[in-house]
Every structure is written in structure tokens, then in C-alpha cells.
């Protein structure tokens, strides 16, 4: 590991320790800052998990309440985002269990129709092509199995490592790899539909 990478890792560890300390104190200013910092990432994850904007927004709020209440359990050894997403994921699964005995799979059906926006700010031809691509991919994402969708979002939108995804989802590394591969394969027809 070179010096820059070492500094980066140290900075991350210090930041996680600071967050853990603040969460133990239930520091509202720290929570305000964290809510703002992770707002888009968490909502995007929840939206892909649930497929419905209102539901995702409810879970978004509940996740932060849970972070406040269980903040003492975070020890700073892992990335805060991994812990945060695990809480969000468990909330969604608890909700599904209350609704009916089920796993994440049942979201695949619930998620339709999708509320995931597919807008673009570009103009003319490029904007149209990009919008079409996003719409196709968004539609494709809602049609693939929820566990594939989750792995793809965590890997390619959140930029998590395979190990982080395995920790978050509580699945073996091989399963994560297989889900990403199968998820991308399942998306292939949708991408081809655009081209």
C-alpha cells in the first residue's frame, strides 16, 4: 500500500471513529450533517429496493431514526455507509415480514410500476438518447429480481467493494459475485433494446 492510499485509509478510519463517537453522544448536529451527506445515496438505494418513492421516503426517515436510537452499536470499524445501508435494508425486510412472510424477493413484484425518474438536463439529440437509455435501464432494473437489483445498485451506483456488499447483505462473497453477473446478464436485453 503506497503512502497516499495509507493516508486515505487512515483518514477514513478517523472519520468513522468520529462518527461512532458522535452517534454514542446522539449528537443532533452530526446527524444533520450525515443526513445531508448520505441523502441521495440512501434514497437511491431505498428507491431501488422498494420501487416506490413514498415508501422509500418513509424508510429514509425511519432509517435515520433507527441510526439515532442504535447509534451506540456502530463502533467505527466498518464504513458508516455499509452500516447505514444495512439498517435501511433490515427495515425494508422487517416491513415485508410484517406485511407477509417473505424475503427481499417479493419486492420484485411490488416494485412495479417504477417511480424512478429518468430525466436528463442535456439538450437535443444527446438528451433524447440518454433519456431513452435511462428509461430502458430503469425499466429493466424494475424487472430483474430484487436481490440482483440490490447488488447492482450497491456495486455500480454506490461503488461498494464486493466484500462490503457481502457484509451488508449477509451473503457469501461468491453469491454476491453471482448476483452481479446474473443481474448484468438480465439487464442485457434492455440495453440491447436501446442500441
Amino acid at each position: 500500500m503506497n503512502a497516499t492510499a495509507c493516508c486515505f485509509v487512515n483518514a477514513m478510519t478517523v472519520e468513522n471513529t468520529e462518527i461512532a463517537r458522535g452517534l454514542r453522544r446522539r449528537d443532533p448536529d452530526l446527524l444533520d450533517h450525515l443526513i445531508e451527506k448520505y441523502q441521495h445515496r440512501l434514497l437511491r438505494y431505498l428507491l431501488h429496493l422498494t420501487g416506490r418513492r413514498e415508501l422509500a421516503e418513509d424508510f429514509f426517515q425511519e432509517t435515520w431514526i433507527r441510526v439515532l436510537e442504535r447509534g451506540r452499536q456502530y463502533d467505527g470499524r466498518y464504513e458508516f455507509s455499509t452500516w447505514l445501508f444495512t439498517i435501511a435494508r433490515n427495515l425494508v425486510i422487517d416491513h415485508l415480514r410484517r406485511k407477509r412472510p417473505a424475503s427481499l424477493d417479493s419486492l420484485a413484484d411490488d416494485a412495479l410500476p417504477s417511480d424512478i425518474p429518468a430525466t436528463a438536463e442535456l439538450s437535443a439529440f444527446d438528451a433524447t438518447v440518454q433519456r431513452e437509455q435511462k428509461e430502458q435501464i430503469s425499466a429493466g432494473m424494475q424487472h430483474i429480481a430484487a436481490e440482483y437489483r440490490e447488488s447492482l445498485v450497491l456495486r455500480f451506483q454506490e461503488g461498494m467493494s464486493l466484500e462490503e456488499i457481502a457484509t451488508l447483505t449477509g451473503t457469501p462473497l461468491g453469491t454476491v459475485k453471482s448476483r452481479i453477473y446474473r443481474g448484468l446478464s438480465a439487464l442485457e436485453p434492455w440495453v440491447k433494446g436501446v442500441r
Binding site: 435501464i137 448484468l184 442485457e188 434492455w190 440491447k192
Partner: peptide, 23 residues
């Protein structure tokens, strides 16, 4: 097609509203 999928996935814009954050 995988490259295209990943590129498109990264481009999907999802933002939290200011109202949601303040609430």
C-alpha cells in the same frame, strides 16, 4: 452491453428533496 448497463446505471438521477431532508 455490460459497459453500457453500468454507464446507464451510474447516470440514473435520484435526488432527495429539500422537504424530505428537513422533515
Amino acid at each position: 452491453s455490460t459497459r453500457e448497463s453500468i454507464r446507464s446505471l451510474r447516470r440514473i438521477p435520484i435526488t432527495a428533496s429539500a422537504r424530505l431532508i428537513s422533515t
